[in-house]
């Protein structure tokens, strides 16, 4: 393939819209305040993005499968609380961790089964979930933060600083990105996910067990939400009842900016990663250039709209290339 063809293929990629916005934003912040790309600041970005990015990954695969999960913020807060309670009772860190992750899988599976079996839109079931898990968190803690004191080796594995710029959570995040990308693009399960989200009836007619696929996605989504929360609590040494409040919208925004469709069947893991970085970069950049923090919502809103328009535009153009007979 010649360079021209490679160039055309590149511009057709779904993630092009968010990549361009990302580059433009980085350049703009840097030109106003070079400290934006100082090593300290880059390190900060690489440190704080993974825990939220992990949640966005889970939300993305579920959205590709045609469902939404509004409870991720609450699970993000609930999981470390459960683990904190276990740690305070003296249970071994790793056992507590495993148990909590299994609990998150259970939460996701339950939400999935309810959605699939009853036909209630996932928006509603997970809205209920969001309130239930957040409510349980408040009941368990009485509104007070809890100390989160895992063993030192656990903290090291999950959030340790390995090299300058390289934190464990970043590696975990990247590993998950690679894993999920592989699952979606190169494995048959991924094909089923896109099918189920793209046109549920067709997937069903072709013999795919739609219910099973969706429940698996719900379970994964809650698992990753819990994992993200545990990572944040390990970093902060605290588990708080209001942790992750509002996170569901951040995660969905990152996915949507990255090209995932709210209606299902479309989206990529890489796109979400770029979308998540873009959100954090705007947040961070506004502080660096000393803008009042009120502006974050305004800019994220603008970016969402521009990115989605860009994504749609590219998609439509891709369709318009008429295949000649």
């Amino acid at each position: 393939m010649g360079f021209r063809e490679i160039g055309i293929q590149f511009f057709q990629k779904k993630e092009i819209s968010v990549s361009l916005i990302l580059m433009a934003t980085i350049l703009t912040f840097y030109s106003i305040q070079p400290k934006f790309l100082s090593p300290t600041n880059i390190e900060v970005l690489l440190k704080i993005t993974p825990e939220l990015g992990i949640v966005a990954l889970g939300v993305t695969i579920l959205m590709i499968g045609g469902e939404l999960d509004l409870s991720v913020g609450s699970v993000f807060g609930f999981a470390p609380l459960i683990m904190a309670v276990m740690l305070q009772s003296g249970i071994n860190t790793w056992i507590a961790f495993m148990f909590t992750l299994i609990l998150c899988l259970g939460i996701g599976t339950a939400q999935g089964i309810v959605t699939v079996k009853t036909g209630i839109p996932s928006f509603i079931t997970t809205l209920g979930g969001m309130l239930i898990w957040r409510g349980l968190a408040l009941v368990v803690t009485g509104g007070h933060p809890m100390y989160f004191t895992p063993s030192k080796d656990f903290a090291m594995v999950l959030t340790g600083k390995l090299y300058p710029f390289v934190y464990s959570q970043l590696l975990i995040f990247l590993a998950l990105v690679v894993l999920l990308h592989f699952l979606l693009e190169r494995h048959k399960f991924g094909n089923w996910v896109y099918a189920v989200g793209g046109k549920r009836d067709a997937a069903e007619a072709m013999g795919i067990n739609v219910a099973r696929v969706k429940v698996i996605l719900f379970a994964l989504c809650s698992l990753l939400a819990g994992l993200g929360g545990i990572i944040q609590s390990t970093r902060m040494s605290q588990a708080m009842p209001n942790q992750g409040d509002g996170l569901e919208f951040d995660a969905i925004a990152a996915a949507v900016i990255g090209g995932t469709s709210l209606f299902g069947g479309v989206g990529t893991v890489i796109g979400t990663v770029l979308g998540e970085f873009l959100s954090r970069i705007i947040e961070n950049g506004l502080i660096i250039i000393r803008a009042p923090s009120y502006y974050f919502r305004l800019y994220i809103g603008i970016v969402i709209i521009v990115a989605v328009i860009g994504n749609l535009y590219i998609q439509r153009r891709a369709l318009k290339l008429r295949v000649r007979e």
Binding site: R186, N191, W192, A195, G198, G207
Partner: peptide
């Protein structure tokens, strides 16, 4: 009503649910 997934390409639709796989080390890949 064509039971076909609009966003997926031709061969992914043809083999939907019965995808051909090959081994890549310990993994099964499309």
């Amino acid at each position: 009503d064509q039971m076909i997934i609009p966003y997926l390409n031709v061969y992914r639709n043809i083999f939907l649910g019965r995808e051909l796989e090959k081994r890549l080390g310990p993994l099964k890949v499309l």
